[in-house]
Design a binder for these strands. Structure first.
Lengths: 151, 151
DNA sequence: CGCAATCATTCTCTTGGTGAATCATTAAGT
DNA sequence: ACTTAATGATTCACCAAGAGAATGATTGCG
């Protein structure tokens, strides 16, 4: 029997949506969506990943990944190349423009963080970071994968 | 220049989506959606509220509220009654079934909280609650209004 | 009284995403 | 080697949440 009414879940959902809004605003000025930003992050850290592996990683369905990559490819941020060893696979990599978009995304994340935690002291930020990390680890969430791809 | 890469925003978005998923799972077994649950909460605390005022409160558009209330009314959870003083307005209130649904929602929130914070000590939970509350207050978020209605 | 504002409602449309069917390619069994 | 099953990518039809504009009823103000 908890001493206080359940509010952590509510606050997380509320603040999470708020954080996502801020980030979406940042990425919109970069010309991509948060979902696409997630793809760029994963491809950056896993060059040569196949679309199938990317879908698994994101928890998205294959057809979704196709349209995501379609947009990123035609925006010149990601390249598809057929695997030599298995010609069914499309291997993904960032283009130069994709690399610099990645830089923009890092800046966007810094800006989001700044806006979010503007009223907080360093100690508060550290404490919050520790608690959220611990919670993420306890819940088994992938530290790379941004939400919004759930199947 | 931050000492650590920006991660609080990311973790909040990730954990917020996770928390929302858990809650959605709970409400699905109650036969309503999280958005509808939000309406029930507001109506419960503001009996006789008009649809317009509810829309403002939720940050949703009027037409959205109409369909939300349509479903809740036909599910027998919320009642619409024309205001006597201003016959343009529909005044909303919970039915008896709506009241018991409210009870179910409280239980769902407790269950969500339990699942989320299962690995945490009381001290950690308290610390996290304090930090999230402070953050919510600093960002000017309404402690009643659940996300997902942004316009 | 007549006109503008307000509340509710309906309708059309967009966006993000799912799921099934299809095609090319590869792997496995005999 | 030859057929069959599995796998990766793609396309297409579909769905649900929600936004926004147009409409109708009612009210308040000049």
């Amino acid at each position: 029997m908890p001493q206080r009414p359940a509010r952590i879940g509510f606050l997380l959902a509320q603040l999470g949506a708020h954080a996502a809004d801020i980030f979406a605003e940042q990425t919109r000025s970069l010309g991509i969506t948060p979902s696409e930003a997630g793809v760029i992050r994963i491809v950056a850290r896993n060059p040569g990943i196949s679309q199938r592996a990317l879908a698994d990683r994101l928890g998205a369905v294959q057809s979704r990944v196709v349209t995501l990559v379609d947009r990123l490819e035609s925006a010149g941020l990601v390249s598809r190349t057929r695997s030599e060893s298995d010609r069914r696979m499309q291997l993904l990599a960032l283009t130069n423009a994709g690399e610099s978009m990645l830089g923009g995304l890092r800046q966007a994340a810094e800006e989001q963080e700044k806006q979010l935690t503007s009223g907080f002291t360093e100690e508060q930020k550290t404490a919050l970071f520790e608690l959220l990390s611990a919670l993420g680890a306890a819940r088994g969430l992938d530290a790379e994968v941004h939400p919004g791809y759930r199947s």
